[in-house]
């Protein structure tokens, strides 16, 4: 139990690192909108493993869509989406 608590505190810390971009879990309606916009099934998004440290930190479960806002030297702010898969 103690070790679990310890690891979860590290999980939250990683979100504060400057190289970790902003991750947000997208709600269902917006998720559907995104899939419609690109005309794809959820599996056709890039994947994010549920065991990924960031996914654990924000509490993403398989089936969620995660929105990532990244800074790019040429493109300003870039929004990308990940589909959370088991594993």
């Amino acid at each position: 139990m103690v070790s679990k608590k310890k690891s979860s505190s590290i999980d939250v810390k990683i979100l504060e690192h400057e190289l970790v971009p902003k991750h947000v879990i997208v709600d269902i309606d917006e998720g559907i909108k995104i899939l419609k916009q690109y005309g794809i099934k959820p599996e056709q998004l890039p994947w994010l493993r549920a065991s990924d440290p960031v996914a654990r930190a924000i509490g993403a479960k398989p089936g969620d869509i995660v929105k990532i806002v990244r800074k790019s030297p040429t493109g300003g702010e870039v929004i990308v989406y990940r589909y959370v898969v088991p594993g």
Binding site: Y38, I40, E43, Q44, L45, P46, R70, S72, T74, G75, G76, V78, I79, V80, Y81
Partner: peptide, 15 residues
């Protein structure tokens, strides 16, 4: 080739 997305905007700036 399956239509899955690799990048959301080509090269992050579409240039």
């Amino acid at each position: 080739s399956t239509g899955s997305i690799i990048q959301f905007i080509y090269g992050e700036d579409g240039a």
